[in-house]
C-alpha cells in the first residue's frame, strides 16, 4: 500500500516559512495526510542520482540567490507537478522589494553601515551569491500549480493538496484566491 502513496517533497527558498506554517495549520488533517502521502523531504533536490522522483514538489519562497536557482531547477527535474506556495514563490512576494536597489549597495548598507567597524560584507564561497533581482519561481522554472497568498490559508493549502490527490490540477477561484 505504501508503494502507491504519492510522494511529496517540499522546499523553502528565501521565504519566511509562513507558507509551511500555514500548511501545519491544517492541524488534524496532517494525520490524514500522513496516511495518504509519503513525505520525502526536500533532500530529493540535493542529490538527483540516488533519490527517486517525487510526484508532487512544493516550493515556498522567492528566488534570491544562486543556490535557490539550483534548488528550483532540481526540484523541477525531479517532480511531476510543481506547486508554488505563497506570493513569494508565485510572484516574488515581499522579497522583490529589494529590486529597487542594486545588490551591492544593499549589502554594503546592511553590513557595513549597520554593524561595527570591523564588519565586512559576506562574500565567502561557502555561502550563495545573491541574484541581481529577487524573482518569482516561474521566472526560472515552469510552475504547474499556483497557490498564492501571504500565506495561503490552511484551507486553501488543503484544498490544493486534496485536488492533487484526486488527480486534478487545482485552480483557485475568486473565493479562494488571496494575495
Amino acid at each position: 500500500m505504501a508503494e502507491n502513496k504519492p510522494k511529496v517533497a517540499t522546499a523553502c527558498m528565501c521565504g519566511c516559512s509562513g507558507c509551511h506554517m500555514s500548511f501545519l495549520d491544517v492541524d488534524e488533517f496532517v494525520k490524514d495526510l500522513a496516511e495518504l502521502v509519503e513525505f520525502q523531504s526536500s533532500h530529493v533536490i540535493m542529490d538527483v542520482k540516488e533519490i527517486e522522483k517525487v510526484d508532487i514538489g512544493i516550493m515556498e519562497g522567492t528566488i534570491t540567490n544562486d543556490e535557490n536557482v539550483e534548488v528550483a531547477k532540481k526540484m523541477r527535474e525531479n517532480c511531476d507537478i510543481l506547486v508554488a506556495w505563497g506570493d513569494c514563490a508565485c510572484f516574488g512576494g515581499i522579497m522583490t522589494m529589494r529590486n529597487f536597489e542594486k545588490v551591492d549597495k544593499i549589502l554594503e548598507e546592511c553590513y557595513l553601515e549597520k554593524s561595527d567597524e570591523e564588519s565586512v560584507v559576506p562574500d565567502d564561497e561557502l555561502i550563495p551569491t545573491l541574484t541581481d533581482k529577487a524573482k518569482g519561481l516561474d521566472e526560472i522554472i515552469d510552475v504547474d500549480v499556483y497557490i498564492p497568498g501571504c500565506p495561503p490559508s490552511a484551507d486553501v493549502i488543503r484544498y490544493g493538496l486534496e485536488k492533487l490527490l484526486e488527480g486534478e490540477i487545482p485552480k483557485l477561484d475568486k473565493d479562494k484566491l488571496r494575495y
Binding site: 509562513g18 509551511h20 534570491t64 515581499i94 545573491l130
Partner: peptide, 28 residues
C-alpha cells in the same frame, strides 16, 4: 545562506506599515 534585505527595503515606507511588513521576516 539567505539574505532578506528587510533592513534596507523598509526604508522609504511609512511607520504605520512596519508591523505588517516586518511580520514577513518570519512566518513562525
Amino acid at each position: 545562506t539567505e539574505f532578506r534585505a528587510f533592513e534596507k527595503f523598509v526604508e522609504g515606507r511609512v511607520l504605520w506599515e512596519m508591523p505588517e511588513m516586518t511580520s514577513r521576516i518570519c512566518g513562525i
